[in-house]
Write a protein that binds this DNA or RNA. Structure first.
Lengths: 192, 192
DNA sequence: ATTTATCAAGACGTAGTGTCTCGATCCCGT
DNA sequence: ACGGGATCGAGACACTACGTCTTGATAAAT
């Protein structure tokens, strides 16, 4: 007897998939990456093991999908924040602040380095690159406007921003996150 | 027939342990974190499975030990670099540069975020904290000398440095690493 | 109402685990 | 050189998880 039926087959599939992703992330957070099995995931999700295998071939595939969804969500949010700001420097600052808030909320839960730990999957790396590209393009705009240093390539500055703001996950408060953004922006300032 | 005997029992134990750590890290790099088993590790190391279980209870314990050794090695190196420099700003710059070089060499191979991915082990986190404390103390010295901004706590600035310089693992060249260090240091500069 | 899709329990063979035994080998201390 | 102690690996054993398959039940789609 299926336990997760509600509307159409399509929404049902989406709901099951989402439940699998959410349950897996929770199990990994609770028990660690190496101590989660397909049997546990099926049981905690409330579906059969055979059903789980119809959605994903293994734990690694589930984690990749979970990560890709989170990155896509973050990307959409950052683009939204970018589009609501005006002026190169303001847009950059708004996006970096939003990124830091995201990092702060995730508390470093394998958000950024999953690619390295799941055998360097190109798809996962690609999703992260999209976020970096948004930031790189904003840096290029701000550099062209003379509001960001132009002696370092925007791609390198984007890597700096993404990693520096990942520290937000280790900070205790929103105020500390704002200071981190200010310090990061200070590193981008044009040289006098 | 034991395959790794040479000198004393103590050196033998150390050699076996080191071989296990090195083989495990290589297997993880090759096959990914979730696809490495105790049976594979024993086989590739050239020891029996029962022997492997005498050294470590599971894969996670091996990875923790591997990580702790690398952190200890990095820490010793950073302290050495620190002690060879003179003056607060010079010592800070020297240590940050050395840290960036280490990050560059590791190419992000689960060096920094293993703690988050292996179920938040306090021991692993503690080892990383020692590195951060060295940098934090250098920041405090430099701030007291007026060479680093004092409006942000040294612990927060240390988190910023460690994460920003972790970007070195994604950079293609030593020159890019040097630019990253310069950008990171720019973020630390006292406000005019 | 019929067709199509999804489902879960159970079975099956496989792989890996974790522990134990035992004979072989080597280091250590005298 | 010898006896004692330590380590070793192969194999056995019972267990867990896997990955696939079958089958009858349930639900959506037409």
């Amino acid at each position: 007897m299926p336990k997760l039926w509600n509307e159409t087959i399509e929404t049902h599939r989406r709901d099951v998939r989402h439940a699998i992703l959410a349950t897996t992330a929770a199990l990994v957070a609770e028990r660690g990456l190496l101590n989660v099995t397909m049997s546990q995931i099926a049981e905690q999700t409330g579906i059969g093991r055979a059903t789980l295998y119809k959605y994903f071939p293994d734990v690694e595939a589930i984690l990749r999908a979970w990560h890709a969804e989170r990155i896509a969500h973050h990307l959409a949010h950052l683009i939204d924040v970018r589009d609501q700001a005006v002026g190169p420097a303001q847009r950059l600052e708004a996006v970096l602040e939003a990124f830091a808030v995201i990092s702060h909320g995730s508390h470093g839960h394998f958000d950024t380095d999953l690619v390295a730990l799941l055998h360097r999957d190109e798809q996962v790396g690609h999703a992260q690159e999209q976020v970096r590209h948004v930031i790189r393009d904003l840096l290029a705009e701000a550099a062209a406007a003379g509001e960001v240093r132009a002696d370092v390539a925007p791609a390198e500055l984007a890597a700096y921003c993404v990693h520096a703001l990942a520290a937000a996950g280790t900070l205790p408060s929103k105020a500390a996150v704002r200071r981190l953004v200010a310090v990061t922006l200070a590193g981008l300032r044009p040289i006098a």
